[in-house]
Amino acid sequence: MTPDRWPSRTLRIGPASFHLRSPFRRVIDEVNALYRDYPAETADGIYDYAVSAVPSSPLRRWVNPNLRLECDFEPFDTLPLPVELGMLGLEMGMNLQMAVGYRRHVVVHAASSASGDKAALLIGDSGAGKSTLSALLAYREGWRHLGDEFALLDLDAPLLHPFPRPISLKNASIAAMEARAPADRFGPVLEGTVKGTIRHLLPPAAAIDAMETPAEIALVVAPHFRENAAPAWRPMTRTETYVRLAASSTNQALMGEAGFEAVWRCLAHAPAFDIMYGSSDDALELFETLWRKVTA
């Protein structure tokens, strides 16, 4: 089997398209299972980014197999991944393409979710609870999931574009969501990653069907989870919000004035709040309160 004929899958997610491939059949089988609801072709057959999970050396295809990534926008030297984590590798590869190569929108490391035609942006460092909160909004409150990894800010209007990848749940959030979402929406349990245990949750099908429809940004929230914390919130100034958004954007600075204008337009349009909570119930309640406040 030559590299041209390896198992592969083209994948459209929101405005971006990817071509994923690997000589390890199980990796592409897992991709096909997890991404079953996503379109497998582009309008004219041309895709944006190729990400391949290739054996880390020719020998490693057969003996103690492991793999590394090859992408349009290349990762730095990384340690080889076991084949069981191949799909996760492809996911990281896709993230890298969005972070480094994508320039059609401002890419912010954030979750986003919409209710009707209005959307909320959830910013914060890894572990702040963005993925969990957006998963709860999608599966408990019936919101339209826009994305849990990257939010895409329009360059001309205060709009968020969906990039509804499977939600990447980590550690304790996995059990919390297993109780609330249908079992057939979950991917395999991935153990031993640098972030601990990861399990993907496929967003509700309606969110994927509507992935080309943007929503107007109405609220920015910076969630902070702290064990046993009493629920609290405070408004953030535009300057503080700008600094946080700019710091969590992969391409805003690289896009110069257009990037700055896009971020500033969004935060001039949507009020921002910092929220602190100790349980998902508190988080949702705080979120609902703020949402009512800004959309009233």
Binding site: T42, D44, G45, I46, Y47, D48, R103, R104, M255, G256
Partner: peptide, 22 residues
Amino acid sequence: LPAGAQTCLTEERDITRGDHLA
């Protein structure tokens, strides 16, 4: 040019423009 090519090439022009600015 096909639309898919235009998208990728436009993106590349934006990347180059950023490079030149820097």
